[in-house]
Computed example of a mutant assay.
Amino acid sequence: MPAPQDGPLLDDAAGRLIRPYTVSNGRTRPTAELDLLSLMMATGIEPDVPLGPEHAVALGLCEGPTSVAEIAAHLRLPAAITKILLSDLADCGAVIAHAPAFHDMPTDRSLLEAVLDGLRRQL
């Protein structure tokens, strides 16, 4: 997966040239419920509203299933801002989100006991 190239928004020496919350127009909450492990996938539908360059890069990263955390790392943006960008794309139908599989049974006792046993063996 290609990383975004340095351009008018990024500079190797100076870093990000605009503040992260400028990218989200000052919004601090996404409209969709996204987890860091949610997998985002492009639908092939072009957004019908004008979006910023970060939206375009995020959409390009969603050609295959990609986690919110991985997209945030590629964009070099905080996860909170990335979730807002991705929820914008989801609102216009350009991407869909798949919740992590473990959300079906987040408190599976046998899994938690296996993790605890593994940790005890390591100590």
Rank of each mutant, 00 (worst) to 15 (best):
A80V: 12
E63T: 09
C92Y: 03
T22K: 14
P20Y: 06
D104K: 08
A80G: 09
L36V: 15
A79I: 13
R16M: 13
V57E: 07
T107S: 09
A14V: 15
A101T: 09
L116V: 11
V57H: 04
E54L: 10
D117A: 15
A99H: 09
G93Y: 05
L77M: 03
E46L: 11
R27C: 07
L37A: 13
T31Y: 10
M40Q: 03
R120Y: 12
A56I: 07
A58R: 00
M40R: 01
I81S: 01
L86C: 05
D48R: 12
I18L: 13
A101H: 07
L119V: 10
D35M: 09
L59F: 00
T43R: 00
H74Q: 11
G15S: 07
I81D: 02
A99T: 05
L10N: 10
A79E: 11
S38Q: 03
L111Q: 12
E113W: 04
R121P: 00
R19D: 14
A80P: 06
A56V: 12
D6A: 10
E70A: 09
H103T: 11
G7Q: 08
A72I: 00
R16L: 15
H55R: 04
A13G: 09
E54Y: 15
N25P: 03
E33N: 15
L59K: 00
D108V: 04
I96K: 14
E54R: 07
G26W: 06
G44P: 02
V95I: 14
P4W: 03
T28H: 13
L116C: 12
G15K: 04
P100E: 03
G52R: 09
E46F: 07
P65S: 04
S24E: 04
G26T: 11
D117K: 14
A101N: 04
V23M: 06
E54F: 15
T82R: 02
R16K: 13
G15N: 07
S24D: 02
M41F: 08
L39A: 05
G64D: 04
E33F: 10
R19A: 14
M1P: 02
G15L: 05
V115H: 12
G7V: 00
A79L: 10
A14L: 14
S38I: 01
A56R: 12
H55Y: 07
P65Q: 04
K83D: 06
P30T: 07
E46A: 14
H55T: 09
A79G: 05
G64Y: 05
Y21V: 08
H98F: 09
D108M: 07
R120M: 11
P47C: 06
L39P: 00
R109A: 13
Y21S: 11
D35A: 11
L77D: 01
Q5S: 13
N25R: 14
R27D: 10
A79T: 11
D35L: 07
E70P: 01
V115R: 13
E113C: 08
E70F: 03
C62R: 00
D108I: 02
L111C: 11
G52S: 15
P4D: 04
H103Q: 10
A114E: 10
N25C: 14
A80K: 13
A58H: 00
L17C: 05
E33Q: 15
P2S: 09
R121M: 13
A101S: 08
L59R: 01
I81K: 01
D48V: 06
I18D: 05
L39N: 02
V49Q: 12
E113R: 09
H98Q: 10
V57R: 06
A94P: 02
